[in-house]
Design a protein around this nucleic acid. Structure first.
Lengths: 199, 199
DNA sequence: CCACACATGTAAATTGTTACATGATTGA
DNA sequence: TCAATCATGTAACAATTTACATGTGTGG
């Protein structure tokens, strides 16, 4: 799935500008998809070219004209086809976990810093961003979220909670073990042979 | 972080070929990092050029010569520097969750299929792959895993368990709600205005 | 007989990020 | 005064995946 489909999806929620789409993605999709202006604007141009979206240009002073995009019937059909044919992939790319895996190669202070940073980041997402979004969604006048949207949001909350709890629970032990292995004079313990273990 | 650093990291566990590295990544890193031959082989060539790894070529019949790579002291230093300077990012890219978010645009049978597929996939990873790996790691003769490795493995198991439990718990309700909204004649309920909710 | 494991590598295509270019207004 | 918000867009760069190229041995 590319940014094009995602933009189409967001536009199926209502017309908006490229700038709006970015913000919308930041709040609702931040924990499972990300896209920058560098991919959104070209995607919108391409969608317009294909006739999947209509553009309405609104003149503004002191800044570029605003372009409001809205999905066309053809666009909605394209979106549905695209979604129906999309394989449900789910990939994680975590420099954080690579760092943890090789924690014994990291200066202990840096390890502590990294753990601290991840905890802080996840707490902020969980207790500020997500909470704010869910409260806002529950506000009167706002259309109910579709069940699938609640599912996706809930998934993010659940998984993030689990991750955060795990890191908080394991942190002291990990720091202790790393500190200990750094002090005692066995830093060159032969790790090796993990790949050959089966033989 | 690029594949180069990752290869260096894996090679710090013991010497092996590009083919071995791929398999090693598949078992230990599958849930937080992925790399294909197309990125591994060029990475190894580059590392050799930089003097971070040594190559030993082993002639073979009926197939390409095997190249065994081992990390050099300079390589180990480069690895440590690289790791110390790496920001702990953690990104998820999930077509699955996008599909769920827009579940109301999906044929209900396809939705059921997708959920089924994800549950099966995650159960397999959790109960087969991870279990096998952990058992193997506990086997006699295999060096103890470093604490950081146990941390990373445990993180994967924890988060995957949470994800799986969530999907299994939510599935019936989601399918029911989607089926219901498909039947009653309000498919064109104006979703809109979610982005404008704050006003 | 087909698929898979073994084994390396290249090239094209895809896809996306980062940085740049432009510039007014508003609040701390 | 500095940073952020609003607003669009391009171009260079980075990184990866996919498919291709080549070929044998083994097991179902």
């Amino acid at each position: 799935m590319d940014t094009r489909t995602l933009c189409l999806g967001v536009l199926s929620l209502g017309e908006m500008s490229g700038y709006d789409i970015k913000k919308c993605l930041e709040v609702s999709f931040r924990h499972f998809f990300q896209a920058s202006y560098g991919s959104i604007y070209p995607a919108l141009a391409e969608l317009a070219r294909q006739g999947y979206v209509r553009v309405r240009t609104i003149a503004q002073e002191g800044r570029p004209d605003k372009k409001i995009y809205s999905i066309t019937p053809a666009g909605l059909e394209a979106l549905r086809n695209e979604l129906a044919g999309t394989e449900p992939r789910h990939r994680v790319r975590s420099e954080f976990l690579v760092l943890m895996f090789f924690a014994h190669h990291l200066p202990p202070e840096r390890l502590a810093e990294v753990l601290e940073e991840m905890i802080g980041r996840w707490e902020r997402i969980l207790f500020e961003d997500l909470a704010a979004f869910e409260q806002q969604s529950a506000a009167p006048g706002v259309g109910e979220l579709e069940p699938g949207m609640r599912f996706a949001l809930g998934f993010g909350r659940t998984v993030l909670s689990a991750a955060l709890a795990y890191v908080k629970r394991q942190r002291p032990g990990l720091l202790r073990e790393i500190a200990a292995s750094g002090k005692d004079p066995a830093p060159a313990r032969p790790l090796a042979d993990i790949a050959d273990a089966g033989d």
